[in-house]
Amino acid sequence: MGFFIVDLHRQIEQLYKKQYAGATATDTFTVYRGQGLSVGDFEQLLKIKGGLISFNNFLSTSNNRNISLDFAQRATINPDQVGVLFIMKINPALSTAPFASIAGISNFQGEDKVLISMHSVFRIQDIKQMDGNDRLFEVNLTLTADNDPELSSLTDYIRQESFPDSEGRYRLGMVLWKMGQFDKAENIYQVLLDKTTDDNDQTTLHGQLGSIKKDQEKYHEALTLHEKSLDTCQKTLPPNHPSLATSYICLGLVHSKMCNYPKALSYYEKALKIKQQSLPPNHLSLASSYYDIGLVYRKMSNYSKARTFYERAIQIGEQSLPSNHPDLQKWRNNFEDVKNR
């Protein structure tokens, strides 16, 4: 599947270069896409109006508004969905993602279809109810420009969090893991683990395998692997090394999933102590630890403690993240949930 995705992306890039070479702002055009969103997803969309949205799939769009609207209207038949007509304005001279007209090769004749590559980022300009129907909306989007300052800030942050120095097989394993291809990712990491005698590599690979088992809800196996990772760290690293903090966090997360909240809290606090010794007080990694601890206190029904740690996370996030960053929004939503408890 991964090779198919890469090949499709490259074909779109090639068509984009042929079709839009030398394009200017006067070549700006509008396409449409009608679909259903779950009620929860639509509520999240409303919260980030004016901000950025990224689609994690290839987008098939049409120049025919009525055909797209029909798809949105059909979605309202499902009581658990909201029909959405996306109206997408695209300036080919400024776009950050490749797209291409596939009118000549599409099975759907009579309409010009534009295929937009996955992970395209749009700004949400407006959200409006249609025809007085509270389950049918139009959402106006603009494909972001390369010089969008908010997109640049967000991209820099994500790049720092995405293991930029990882080697090819590690990166492939991560991609497969994020795609939910757990068995394939596990096979890659296991091969790498069997071949290495390096303590640092073993620590990382045991941790990655443990995280895969956690995502598969195989929590006892995950604990075993993360404990192996921690054991190697403790034997080879000083007691305040950042890798120890990572192992503590992973163990805390698994214990939290297993509802072993005192254990989870203990590991999270150990990780926080290391970070406080080695990082500036406004570092985003500290914000993540404050949020993790707040989440455990919330699950233990200690709402006053939860509020305290959520507030610390938000204070750091507001200094370092775009205002519509999903982590910051999540922290704020959780704080509001415990605010008056």
Rank of each mutant, 00 (worst) to 15 (best):
G2F: 10
G2A: 07
F3C: 04
F3D: 11
I12A: 09
Q14C: 08
Y16I: 08
K17M: 12
Q19I: 06
A21D: 05
G22S: 10
G22P: 04
T28H: 07
G34E: 00
E43S: 13
L45M: 13
K49Q: 11
N56C: 04
F58K: 03
T61Y: 02
A72R: 01
Q73E: 15
I77R: 12
G83M: 05
L85C: 08
I87M: 13
I87S: 09
I90Y: 00
P98F: 12
F99P: 02
F99I: 00
S101K: 15
I102A: 04
G104M: 11
S106Q: 06
N107D: 15
F108R: 10
Q109K: 15
F122T: 03
D126E: 11
G132R: 08
N133T: 00
D134R: 14
L136W: 04
E138N: 12
V139M: 01
L141S: 08
D148W: 02
E150M: 06
D156T: 07
R159Q: 08
D165G: 06
Y170F: 11
R171D: 01
Q181L: 05
F182V: 01
Y189Q: 08
Q190N: 13
D194A: 14
D194H: 13
K195M: 02
T196A: 01
D198T: 04
D201E: 15
H206K: 06
G207D: 00
L209Q: 09
K213W: 02
K214L: 04
Q216C: 07
Y219W: 10
H220N: 14
E221L: 14
A222P: 08
T224R: 04
L225N: 02
H226T: 00
H226F: 03
H226Y: 03
C233I: 06
T236K: 14
P238C: 08
P239L: 05
N240L: 15
T246Y: 07
I249C: 07
L253A: 09
L253G: 01
K257A: 06
C259V: 11
A264D: 02
Y267I: 10
Y267K: 12
E269A: 10
K270D: 14
K270I: 09
A271V: 08
I274A: 11
Q277D: 11
Q277R: 15
S278G: 10
N282K: 13
L284R: 12
D292K: 12
I293K: 10
L295V: 13
V296L: 11
V296N: 12
K299Q: 14
K299F: 04
S304T: 09
A306R: 13
T308D: 07
Y310P: 05
E311C: 10
E311D: 11
A313K: 06
I316D: 07
G317R: 01
Q329N: 12
F335P: 01
D337C: 06
